[in-house]
Amino acid sequence: MIQKIWNYISEVRKTSPLVHSITNYVVMNNTANALLAAGASPIMAHAHQEMKDMVNIAGAVVINIGTLDEYWVESMRLAIRQAEALKKPWILDPVGAGATPYRNAVLKELTSIYHPSVIRGNASEIMALAQMSVQTKGVDSTHQTEEAIGAAIHLNSTTAAVICVSGATDTIVHQQKTISLKNGDALMSKITGMGCSATALIAAFCAAHPENLFEATAAAMALMGVAGQKAAAMAKGPGSLQMHFLDILSTLTEEEFTELLILEETYASI
């Protein structure tokens, strides 16, 4: 499995898939740079008039609800409809799920009327999205990954989306399969937009590998975790971590990746 995941990483670097992100003001620069460093190409547009055209040329779409407003929600609808019409993957990042009734209402629409290919969030966001009764602390998780596995299984069964719960352990759930990744570093939580960068990388990998979104998601999170772990070992704090993280996304070798990756897969009933 580790060799297969590295092949996914190599393919993204070779093909440079274009990712169209409808994302939030806070993380645009971070996620664009993460995509570029991993070998993908970012584009971020919100005008209603160009949504269809942007989706036409993109390999995948990111829908990130971090800074919601009514205009952007309509942009999201237009992009999602076009992605689904063209059978292109779109990835939902339910930033701050459970924080406000408006945010919950938008998420309910996006997951009940439309069909996300992948949903990535922290444990609290995934639990809130599954139950709509968990109060989150802004965009920060107040729960551990292990607490959200039941919610992830429920979301997978109700939406058919691959579910990724990110945290100290990243767990990807789909049908009767799970992959858990235990890389990364606690210092990553001190940089805004790391989770959003993970979602953007998932989109790039899904664009390059639409035939297996489960493995594509796992590969993106594996790259994210290993790069973050190596960067933290070199960093003096959050600022230098971000710099090293981008460098390692770009320069990571197969030998370094294979040596560090900690992966556990289960293909039995969960």
Rank of each mutant, 00 (worst) to 15 (best):
T100F: 08
V73N: 07
A32V: 13
A85F: 02
G98M: 02
R81D: 03
A32T: 12
W72F: 09
Q49M: 10
D53E: 07
V61T: 15
A83K: 15
I80P: 10
T23Y: 05
L78F: 09
L68K: 00
Y114N: 04
A105S: 15
A97G: 07
V106Y: 02
E50T: 11
A45M: 02
N104Q: 05
Q49E: 15
V12H: 13
L92A: 08
M28N: 07
I80V: 04
L107P: 01
S112K: 15
S75A: 11
Y102Q: 08
P101F: 05
G59D: 11
P116L: 11
K108E: 05
S21H: 08
M44E: 13
G96I: 09
V73C: 12
I43R: 06
N7M: 11
A83V: 10
N24S: 08
L18Y: 05
L18E: 06
N104I: 03
T111C: 15
E109S: 08
S41H: 11
A58S: 14
N7T: 05
N64I: 00
A32I: 03
K52D: 15
P94M: 09
G59Y: 13
S21R: 07
P116C: 15
G96P: 00
S112E: 14
V27T: 09
M54C: 10
Q82L: 14
V95F: 00
A38T: 05
V26P: 01
M28E: 15
L110G: 10
L92Q: 10
S10Q: 09
A97F: 01
E74H: 05
I9G: 02
N24H: 12
K14Q: 12
Y25H: 11
L78C: 03
W72V: 13
T31L: 09
E74Y: 09
A45G: 07
T100Q: 01
H20Q: 12
I57E: 08
E11R: 10
H20N: 04
Y71I: 14
E84G: 04
I65E: 00
A83F: 15
V62R: 01
T111V: 06
N7L: 08
Y8F: 03
Q82H: 15
K52I: 15
Q82V: 06
L78E: 03
D93H: 07
E74T: 06
V95W: 00
E50N: 11
S75M: 08
H46R: 14
G96M: 08
H115S: 14
T111L: 14
R77F: 02
H48Y: 05
L86Q: 07
S41G: 04
M54T: 08
A79G: 06
H46K: 12
P17I: 09
K52V: 14
M51D: 13
Y8A: 01
I63V: 09
W90R: 06
S10Y: 07
L36K: 14
A83H: 12
S41T: 14
H46W: 13
A105W: 06
A37N: 09
H115E: 01
I65G: 00
